[in-house]
Design a protein around this nucleic acid. Structure first.
Lengths: 259, 259
DNA sequence: GACTAATTACTGGTCAGACCAATGCACCAC
DNA sequence: GTGGTGCATTGGTCTGACCAGTAATTAGTC
């Protein structure tokens, strides 16, 4: 592959230029969080710079916390923890279940927008990735037998992530990501319960299918609608679960025993 | 002058080691703020490392804002010591204007929902607070004369915050807050410009009045609509501003040439 | 066949030396 | 003095080599 020269931004040295270009590639979703970047030597060829400059460029990204480098392994795009993930408030949310539904409310909003944009802006590459994630999830879910709930949750998450990434709005992706992480960290046990019960699982599966269909066929409004319903359903299921949980709690069982 | 080998800190690579040693020298007062460091080649001899590693070390210090380097001149110890680290996300979004509009897109969504919920859920106490913030802002804005833009921006922010708090969704409030901080940190200068131009200010004032009215009177749909329009307007204004900014940049000298 | 150890083909980390480009000072002509 | 001019010095970049971890593959062993 030939060197791909791109006009230098005036006033920018080579390393800064390299860093900027790589950042752009990350923002464009070419390199995604968690993904391994090409090797330094490959990037040199690709960007048409020496390894010294390339390495200084990577050093910039490392300083910013954007990539993470390990000798003998490579550089991976850091999993961005956006929007004050370490703020005291977030910790507060974590320990207080009553914020759970507030969280779901915001998440529904973002998830709906995400689905809408994915349907309207998604490229063919995005659609391929979304479908792939969907199939992995659906196949596993239908394989019946004894399913590993944790694994299913991961596949579920990957599917939704793929959809959000197709929105091509990195801010939206990262915000949604952080809210989802927050959600799972607080009620992962409950979510697991949802998968165990047959009725909720069937509903979730059906909604996933609808969401997939709407996004792939580019029906923006439909996609948003389905996503909203999906979150509404989950919220309702969690509400029911909580109710039941409280009933149990009243009979002297403690929350912690379920986590 | 002979090479001065010093025991490597375990787990630290050469560049980090170099950066650490130089930082220590600066803290010890060997190199003082404003002072010119020895040349790279001299530092290489002195520290017993290659220029590549030395340069990566300097790159670290530069990223932290500890030194300032000019070609053909040298590296000087910065007079302003680092102001405080920022999140990786901030770094990534800062230099990329295109993420600005992604950010605004998400913010519009949240701001709309926030206004809607404020109108439908807001209590009488919320309404009193919102009105108070609104009056403080509006009074100051109408006092004409020479207004302190920064103060107006604070009042503006306080008003929007009061509205979002009336949504009674702490997650929404916090997420919105984070995004707003992020926004202001990257384009505060531009936002200031908006307040300076008479036409945008008039439009913003009018939209604030409408938003206040809708929220107070409990017209949820109307409130959401106004909030969305508000953000859309601001986005458009920033787009125009950016365009003009680029035009100026193209037709004149770059800032760096004046430094 | 299954498990373990050596091999090997990567990866990033560091080094040396060369040349380019901007800076700034000393020198010189006017 | 004033304004060029040249040159030594600075940072910026490139090349190619070698060192040092990593991980997958292979060979060897039980």
């Amino acid at each position: 592959m030939p060197a791909e020269h791109q006009a230098l931004t005036p006033g920018q040295r080579m390393p800064e230029h390299v860093a900027t270009r790589l950042e752009r590639l990350i923002l464009d979703g070419v390199f995604r969080p968690g993904q391994l970047l090409p090797s330094e030597r490959r990037l040199c060829d690709r960007l048409g710079v020496s390894r010294a400059s390339l390495r200084e460029g990577l050093r910039i990204l490392r300083s910013k916390g954007i990539i993470d480098t390990r000798q003998g392994h490579g550089s991976t795009v850091a999993t961005l923890l956006p929007v004050g993930s370490q703020s005291p408030l977030m910790h507060l949310f974590k320990d207080h279940p009553r914020t759970l539904f507030d969280l779901l409310e915001v998440r529904a909003l973002l998830e709906g927008e995400s689905a809408r944009l994915a349907a309207s802006r998604g490229t063919s590459v995005d659609r391929v990735l979304i479908t792939r994630r969907y199939r992995e999830m659906a196949d596993y879910a239908e394989s019946a037998d004894t399913i590993d709930v944790e694994r299913l949750a991961r596949l579920d998450h990957a599917f939704h992530l793929a959809v959000s990434q197709a929105s091509h709005n990195p801010v939206l992706v990262h915000t949604l990501q952080s809210l989802t992480d927050l959600l799972l960290s607080s009620v992962f046990a409950s979510v697991k319960h949802l998968y165990h019960l047959p009725a909720p699982r069937a509903m979730i599966n059906q909604q996933h299918a609808q969401l997939h269909e709407a996004v792939i066929s580019g029906e923006a409004e439909q996609a948003e609608q389905v996503a909203l319903e999906h979150l509404t359903s989950i919220t309702q299921l969690l509400r029911d679960l909580e109710e039941e949980h409280e009933r149990l709690e009243r009979s002297s069982m403690r929350l912690e025993e379920w986590l």
